[in-house]
Design a protein around this nucleic acid. Structure first.
Lengths: 187, 187
DNA sequence: TTGACAGGTGAACGATTGTTCACTATACTA
DNA sequence: TAGTATAGTGAACAATCGTTCACCTGTCAA
């Protein structure tokens, strides 16, 4: 049962598509597609799988993404609780609009107080109106930089997340290219 | 051409499976599957799509994931360069082993010098041998915490990423549950 | 001992799959 | 003006799809 889900999952990760009923049969060791049909019904009930309108298999919520557990400081979930956990696809969670989103590598330490350090990847979204306090990717006086976007009365300034650096006041022009939607660091 | 890719991409994101040739025809406005067949051949050549061994469509590298651009401080890519960019699936990039990886919400500020602040999500992987300098999720003297794992001679200590807090030396027992593989922050 | 039931087999079904062929229309080249 | 790719149509093809039916096992409770 649980074993079958894992095998289907492996198939999906390798081939990047869901198996057919016949392939599931071969995967598990069944000799009949009917056995698969009954198994699939149960897996759908437990949300491991989905079916499209033509009966083909689709990955359920449990097939893609990462398990989400509790919090670090507030204690660690027991193995029993883990079974009840939710799963989350990083792509779907972090990237609502694929076309206008892109990834940018960070250099410099001008945003380190915001927890963004050299080597981090930044998820930025184009074509969104920035609000005061947002972190933005901007072109100020023909130079590209990442800073806090702050509306100070009628004026707009770019404030770094590091007291070592000065607040930038646009002299001739300020173009907001994108706002930062997320930060990703990989060790 | 580019339009067709976008329509297929939308189909894939919505239905979580690739369309059949007939569905592509309806999507684009073709009345013949053969027209699709010829179009697909070209899209495969440009790596927008793939085919499996049975001729079905698979998402190519360009269909999933986020565009990766240059660096922030080192200048901003021009629109021409963007076309040459690579794409990256966050799930595949950050989660090599789905079964042993999980997501944990961070509370407290004990790792803020490492750029991990309250509210961040931490990607942790179970069952890996920690090396000195790794950030780990550990149970020290029956309490769960996230700290640097430091091998100090023969002894092992847990060092926080914040000078406000003391270095933890395990009194009775220290269990390393997982090592931190990544940090994710969403605004 | 009997009955019900869950789990699996095997075969047949219509529907849909991707492929292929002959054919038409448009656009561009020589 | 004739010739040649390019792009799309429409129909036929075998193969595969998921579904469904009757049937064969065990297992467990009454």
């Amino acid at each position: 049962m649980r074993e079958a889900v894992k095998k289907i999952e492996r198939f999906y990760n390798k081939k990047k598509r869901m198996p057919s009923f016949q392939e599931v049969a071969e995967l598990i060791g069944y000799k009949s597609k009917n056995a698969v049909s009954k198994l699939v019904d149960k897996l759908i009930e437990r949300e491991f799988l989905l079916k499209d309108e033509q009966g083909r298999l689709l990955p359920g919520r449990c097939m893609r993404g990462v398990q989400v557990l509790g919090t670090v400081a507030a204690g660690f979930p027991s193995p029993v609780e883990e079974e009840l956990c939710d799963t989350l696809s990083l792509d779907e969670w972090l990237v609502p609009h694929r076309e206008s989103t892109f990834l940018l590598k960070v250099t410099g330490d001008s945003m380190q107080d915001a927890g963004i350090v050299e080597g981090d990847m930044v998820l930025a979204e184009r074509g969104v109106q920035p609000r005061s306090g947002d972190i933005v990717i901007a072109e100020i006086d023909h130079e590209w930089t990442m800073k806090y976007f702050v509306r100070d009365g009628a004026k707009v300034v770019l404030r770094p997340g590091n007291t070592k650096y000065p607040v930038l006041v646009p002299r001739c022009e300020l173009k907001i290219a994108a706002i930062v939607r997320g930060v990703i660091r990989k060790y």
